[in-house]
Each structure stands twice: as C-alpha cells, then as structure tokens.
Design a protein around this nucleic acid. Structure first.
Lengths: 137, 137
DNA sequence: TATATATCCTATCTATTTAGTAGTATTTAT
DNA sequence: ATAAATACTACTAAATAGATAGGATATATA
C-alpha cells in the first residue's frame, strides 16, 4: 500500500500542474482546501518535494509553490520514492533502496526471482506515468 | 514491502513442503532452527496458517505441522493475503480487501486506473507461484 | 518602514503496526 | 506419570503513519 502522505503528494502535484497556467505560485492553503488535505501536513509534504527538486517555493506574500520541472518530466515513481521509499516488495530487489535481507541468503532465496519480475512489471507501468499524464488536460 | 513475518511464513511453508516425504509432521523448533526464525514468533505464524486452512497441526509428543493441501494448491498470494493483507497498492483497487479511499472520489481519482494495472500485472506473476514451485525439487 | 501573509523549521503527539517475548494450559505418545 | 509438543493469553519495545502547534523568517505592498 502507498501511504496517505504519498497520495496527498501526488494530488497536490497534479493540482499545481492544473493551475500553473497563470504563472503565479500556488499556495499551500489553496491546495489544502480544494484537495481536502490537512494544511500543516501538506506543508511538510510540499517542503519535502521542494527539497527533492520537484517543486520550487516562493516565500512571503503572494508566495507558494511551482513545479521546478515540466509536469511531463516528473514521474510517478520519483514522487513515490521520495515520499514512501522503495517500490519493490523485497529490500534485496530494490533498485533505488537496495538492502540485503536480514536472514535469507540471496543465492538460495526462493522468492527473489519472483519479486524481481513483480518489480519489473510494476516499473513498466509506473515509469510511464508522469504528473502530466495524470492531469485532466 | 512484504513483512518479515510474511517471509517467515513462506520460508516455513517451503521448509515443510521440502520435508513432508516422511509422513511425520514437522516441528516448530526444527523449522525455527533451520530457517533461523524466532521460535515463539514462528509459533504464532504457523497457528495463523493453520487457522486459515493452509496447515494442519498435531499436538503433543511427535506433534507438529503438515500442509493441509498439496503444495501446488497453495498459492503465494493466498499466503501473502493471510499474513500481510492486501496486495494492491490502493485500498480502492484491492480485490480481496476493498475499501473506499478516505478522501478521494473514485470517479475522479487520477491514479486508480494506473494502480489497477499494477495490481493485474502483479497478480499475473504471483498467482502463478505456489509453495510447490518455490521448493527445490 | 510597518504590516499582512506566505513559507520554513523544530518539536511534539497519538494511534497503529511490526516484531517479537513470557508464561501457562492443554494435548498426546510412550 | 511424564516428557514433549502445540494452543492460548498477555505483554512489550521500536518504528511508522498521520498528523498538530507555535514561532522564525522572508516578501509584496501600502
């Protein structure tokens, strides 16, 4: 399962993408209100996306958030990895967060090959999706 | 990510399948020792598998656990669902544990279709795997 | 330059889940 | 009887999820 936090992040990014025509940054409170996301929690999420080069922010009056890159250059997997970490179902088959499994020997692991397949088919789908492809227009 | 508990469950079942030739039930302590799984934790897991019609148990001396069904009739998905719950990445696309998402309207949900695809491709792979297909022989 | 308004940052909180452990009751083969 | 196995109940510690509170800092504009 992906976390609520990650769903919030995706919805917020899609909202920003849908409202970026008029060059002005989008405010946290607007997103929070329209997408029904707790404002203070959303602040944390948007800051995290900014720290990871998905968004840029402008402080002070008339401030807010803008996409740092084009919506078609922000993949769903990138957002999911920033917010939730690994996408793979086993640490030892994760491409971006590889960790050795605590107790199993990888050479003799019965399930590794299966979950490598699951990872590959999952990424086939998710890598093709971007914030752009998730917007209405 | 699947939980350690679920990995333990799969390894334990494969171990039992690999040791069922001599009609005797397999003891928790043997599995725990050979698979490096904490014994008391493994007890809980095996009981859960028994309660869900994957294993049968025999109490008392010379007791232990046996597969209730043939190893080729126990799918990986069935075990994963018993131990970890849903396999899908969104509650609203889960086949066996459907729940409406808290805040998003399903009709206008941007990501639902994508995660339905992920679910289908994942199940294509996992449904084909059984305890039998994971054993050595 | 004062002020309103936005993000930024640190700290804290509660509930749930994960990963166990401890101890006792019950069953069964010998 | 007794040894040896599962069954059951209760508890614990650490991590994660899902936030909330309050003040610091930056900025547009009157």
């Amino acid at each position: 399962m992906i976390s609520n936090k990650c769903k919030y992040a995706i919805r917020a990014l899609v909202h920003i993408a849908n409202n970026e025509q008029d060059d002005k940054p989008v405010m946290t409170s607007d997103i929070a209100h329209e997408q029904q996301i707790p404002r203070k929690f959303l602040e944390i999420i948007l800051r995290e996306l900014r720290n990871n080069c998905i968004l840029e922010s402008k402080r002070g009056k008339d401030g807010g958030f803008r996409l740092l890159r084009a919506a078609e250059d922000i993949s769903l997997t990138e957002v999911m990895r920033i917010i939730d970490g690994p996408i793979a179902m086993l640490p030892c088959v994760s491409l971006n967060y590889y960790r050795k499994c605590d107790e199993c020997e990888e050479e003799s692991c019965e399930i590794k090959a299966v979950f490598e397949q699951v990872r590959d088919r999952t990424l086939d789908i998710l890598n093709g999706q971007t914030i752009k492809s998730l917007t209405l227009s």
